[in-house]
Computed example of a mutant assay.
Amino acid sequence: MNRDRVNPDTVTLTVTPALADLADARGVGVEELAAEALRRYVADEATRTRVAATGLAQRHQSLLRRLGE
Rank of each mutant, 00 (worst) to 15 (best):
N2C: 11
A18D: 15
L19E: 02
A18C: 07
A52C: 02
L19T: 05
L67W: 07
A43C: 05
E69V: 12
V51Q: 12
R5H: 09
R39K: 10
G27H: 06
L33F: 05
V6Y: 09
S62V: 05
S62D: 15
R48F: 05
L13W: 11
E32G: 01
E31P: 00
S62E: 14
A35Y: 05
T49I: 10
R66N: 08
D4M: 06
D24N: 13
A53V: 13
D44H: 14
E32D: 14
V51A: 13
R59Q: 13
L33V: 07
N7M: 05
A23R: 01
V28N: 01
R39D: 13
G55M: 01
G29M: 07
D9E: 12
L22K: 10
H60Y: 10
D9P: 00
L33D: 03
R50S: 09
D44P: 05
R40C: 11
L64K: 04
D9N: 15
L19Y: 03
D9H: 13
L38F: 08
R66Q: 14
N7T: 02
R26I: 08
T47I: 07
R59S: 13
E36C: 08
G27V: 00
P17L: 00
D44G: 15
T47W: 11
V28Y: 02
T47D: 13
R5P: 01
T47M: 06
A23Q: 02
E45Y: 00
L56E: 08
E36F: 12
L13M: 14
L64T: 00
L56C: 04
A53C: 06
D44L: 09
R66V: 11
V11F: 08
T14A: 15
R39E: 12
S62Q: 14
R50K: 09
L19S: 02
L67I: 02
A34M: 02
E45P: 00
A52W: 04
M1G: 15
T10K: 08
G29T: 15
A46Y: 01
R40W: 03
V51R: 10
A20S: 09
T54M: 10
D21Y: 01
M1V: 04
G29C: 06
R39L: 13
A20E: 14
S62I: 05
R39W: 06
A20Y: 03
R59Y: 02
H60G: 05
V11Y: 09
